[in-house]
Design a protein around this nucleic acid. Structure first.
Lengths: 208, 208
DNA sequence: CTTAATATTAGTATCAGGTGCTAAATGTAA
DNA sequence: TTACATTTAGCACCTGATACTAATATTAAG
């Protein structure tokens, strides 16, 4: 789920729910509230006004519903999305290196560090998903190439050990060969002394 | 960079800068503004009030500085962080299949579709980054395995054609061999009739 | 010292998107 | 008809701003 309802604290004391008799309209209300929760989870950027138009009820009703459901106001929702994803984006964003660039010698070699966390791992086992390790390796490989844009042509990779969330991964990349616009890069990722990933990338630089 | 200054549009016409004579205090101002930009880039969640306290100037001065630097207000900054990352997280989130699961025959084969967008691509060229294509392939490969958790052991992959943002990718995965807890999975990703990715994964199922 | 320009601070009106409260209107089932 | 749930309305207030005007330093140069 993108927008965790569970993270909304301070659900207010809603005395209304005590009511023994639930008149007919209760169904409409319940359905609307269910649908409302759904809609906001899918798109937390909706204002009460937009929601009231969508459901054909007044703004006040939407506010009551949010109160009963413990859904915070728009700004808090946006903030929670921003805060919740701020760290993740740092490590997976296509814009930059996945992980932190520790050292780089353009055209030769580079080094990066990735601090893994729960968001990158399987929930049950805390084992970090391969795609994040791959992304660290790929982005470092691209970074060491001294060219504007580089694409992966071929990759040969091997995961040697599972990585648990919370562990710090250090990646080393080295350009071992170059033929015209083709770069051959080796990337090794270590967890302390142990190698957990090894990959050979062939990258193609595009010049425009 | 986490928080793109470049994405802040509508830099206002600041006539002040025309001034020929720049008195002494100009240095303090410039330094403060540089530092201000830095601070906001590092932490976009700071209000004008907090910033004014930090720099020991009035809120108005902070506002003037923001105006001159083209930095939007707090709420817009938070929103931009949230919006900018919302799509990315959805498509790369470890929780689910990257792309949409179209068909699955557990233990045999599966099919998924990924609609690429700008957030997955290089800005200059619109070419989709390999890690997203890889993530689609990997997650589908894991999905077809009829086991709780599977890890990638080895992967042999090849990107055959660049993919532009906006294009729809259809991935087919097929288990071709199984030896105990090791699964051999082929994944092919096509863009219409053309194959853009081909990979062989060896997955290891973990049972606890 | 005076002047002109810059830099800073102050104050007011206004806005969006709410909260929190009270009160009234509108169902609806018994 | 009544009791209760549900919905709507209205108002004061809040935060973090914008937009604007005006006053007050600060400072370099004549």
């Amino acid at each position: 789920m993108l927008y965790k309802a569970a993270s909304w604290k301070k659900v207010p004391d809603v005395e209304r729910e005590r009511g023994v008799i639930l008149p007919g309209k209760g169904k409409e209300k319940k359905e609307r509230q269910k649908s409302l929760m759904d809609k906001i989870v899918k798109d937390p950027f909706l204002t009460d006004e937009e929601l009231s138009e969508h459901f054909g009820v007044s703004i006040q009703t939407i506010r009551l519903d949010r109160l009963e459901l413990g859904i915070p106001e728009l700004r808090e929702r946006i903030k929670s999305v921003a805060e919740g994803t701020y760290a993740k984006v740092r490590s997976i964003s296509g814009k930059e290196i996945v992980g932190e660039l520790l050292d780089i010698d353009l055209g030769k070699k580079g080094m990066s560090m990735l601090e893994t966390d729960d968001s990158m791992a399987f929930e049950k086992t805390n084992i970090v998903r391969g795609q994040f390790i791959y992304a660290q390796a790929e982005s470092l490989a691209i970074a060491v190439i001294d060219a504007d844009v580089a694409l992966i042509g071929v990759a040969n990779i091997k995961y040697k050990q599972p990585v648990r969330s919370g562990q710090k991964l250090v990646a080393h990349a080295e350009i071992i060969k170059r033929r015209e616009n083709k770069f051959f890069v080796w990337v090794r990722i270590k967890l302390r002394m142990q190698e957990v990933f090894r990959g050979k990338f062939i990258l193609v630089a595009l010049d425009e």
